[in-house]
Computed example of a mutant assay.
Amino acid sequence: MDLDSKIYVAGHRGMVGSAIVRSLKNKGFTNIVFKSSSELDLTNQKAVDDFFAAEKPDYVFMAAAKVGGIVANNTYRAQFLYDNLMIESNVIHACYVHEVKKMLFLGSSCIYPKLAEQPIHEDSLLTGPLEYTNEPYAIAKIAGIKLCETYRDQYGSDFISAMPTNLYGPNDNYDLKNSHVLPALIRKFHVAKVEDKPEVEVWGTGTVLREFLYVDDLAEACFFLMKNYSDKQTVNVGYGKDLTIRELAETVKEVIEFDGQLKFDASKPDGTPRKLMSSERINQLGWKAKISLKEGIKKVYAEVDKSDW
Rank of each mutant, 00 (worst) to 15 (best):
R274I: 02
S279A: 15
V194K: 15
T244C: 08
N283L: 10
G204C: 13
G206Q: 09
L243Y: 02
I256C: 08
V202T: 05
L243G: 03
D196G: 12
K275C: 10
L176G: 12
K241G: 04
E247V: 02
Y239C: 09
L225H: 02
P273N: 11
N171L: 14
V202F: 05
D231V: 02
N283I: 05
T272R: 13
V194C: 11
M277C: 11
T234A: 08
K241R: 14
E257R: 15
F189Q: 12
P183F: 06
G271A: 07
T272H: 00
F212P: 00
N228E: 05
L218G: 06
V235D: 00
D217N: 13
L185W: 06
D270L: 10
K253D: 01
Y168P: 03
K268S: 09
P273W: 01
I256G: 04
K268E: 11
V215T: 09
K193F: 09
E254T: 14
D270E: 12
E280A: 13
Y168M: 12
I256E: 02
H190I: 06
I256H: 01
D265Q: 12
G238V: 04
E257Y: 08
Q284Y: 08
L209S: 05
L262H: 10
F264M: 09
L262K: 11
A249N: 09
N228W: 04
N171V: 07
L213R: 01
G204Y: 04
L185Y: 09
G238N: 07
L276P: 00
P273F: 01
F264H: 09
N178C: 10
F189M: 14
K268Q: 14
V235Y: 00
E254P: 05
D217L: 13
A221C: 13
V208E: 04
L176V: 15
A219K: 09
K275R: 15
R246I: 01
G206W: 04
F189T: 10
C222S: 12
L176T: 15
R281L: 10
K188W: 07
E201H: 14
